[in-house]
Amino acid sequence: MNALQHSLDAATVAGVIARVAERRPRIHCLTNTVAQNITANMLLAFGAVPSMASHPDEVAAVAAGAGAILINLGTLSLEGERAVPRLLEVAREHRKPLVLDPVFVELSPLRMRLAEEALRLPGIVVRGNAAEMQALEPRLALAPSATRVTTGRIDRIEGPGGWMDIAHGDPLMTKVTGLGCASSALVAACCAVEDDLVLAAGAALTAYGIAGEIAAERSAGPGSFAMHLVDSLAGLGDVALRARMG
């Protein structure tokens, strides 16, 4: 663990969110088919712009103008396998923030190989659950510039510049397919406007978690929760952040 613990207050989170809304960064998402729709809607609610080209013959051209890139290894296709190295090259050449979401990497040698390729990229952000991050631990140990984002009941963010814990959210966020994948896209959106990647990830997950808390209070179950989460994220402001962050 890094020695320096980052602190995060409502004003800082609000500032990062305001920059996303002002700059409207385009986030290029190579993501799984289950998560495409909800990821796009969450990015729009957050103030960012999604693009999701996946064909290997066009993905580099589309991603070159994006503010950040997300690679999600869920539901891999032959085209997706070919597209990943091209996106990594775009991120390397253009110095774009890149977030890797290693979905079920512990189950698939192919996903592990692609994750290993991604971890060679300096300054990468990896957002996964505890099982995924544990499976990647030997590779992450060889990537000292990587920022690790391990999500769960309490989210742990660790990077070269420090670490922080985020304790916002609601259990209903685990009951809707694609919400974890969408959180990776929001991390990418904040990385597009904030150079401190630990701070960027912390702001994204704090905003998302607080929106989840608000949505849970308004919903009757997982179906209505997903609808309210989009609304809560879109309407999240300083007052709600201050009230929930103390």
Rank of each mutant, 00 (worst) to 15 (best):
A130V: 12
A130P: 00
Q134M: 07
A135P: 07
L136D: 11
L136W: 14
R139F: 11
A143N: 07
S145F: 11
A146S: 11
R148W: 09
R148G: 05
T150V: 15
T150S: 15
I154A: 15
I157L: 10
I157K: 11
G161V: 06
G161Q: 14
G162F: 03
G162P: 00
W163T: 01
M164I: 15
D165K: 14
I166D: 08
A167R: 15
A167I: 02
H168N: 08
G169E: 03
D170Y: 02
D170L: 04
D170V: 11
D170K: 03
D170E: 11
D170H: 15
P171M: 11
P171A: 07
T174V: 09
K175L: 13
T177D: 07
G178Q: 09
L179R: 09
L179P: 14
C181K: 06
A182L: 01
S183L: 12
S184H: 04
A185P: 06
L186I: 09
V187S: 07
A188K: 13
A188M: 09
A189W: 13
C190D: 05
C190V: 01
A192N: 03
D195Q: 06
D196T: 04
V198W: 01
V198G: 07
L199N: 03
A200N: 08
A204C: 02
A204T: 03
L205D: 05
Y208I: 01
G209C: 02
I210R: 03
A211K: 00
A211S: 13
A211G: 02
G212N: 02
G212H: 05
E213F: 01
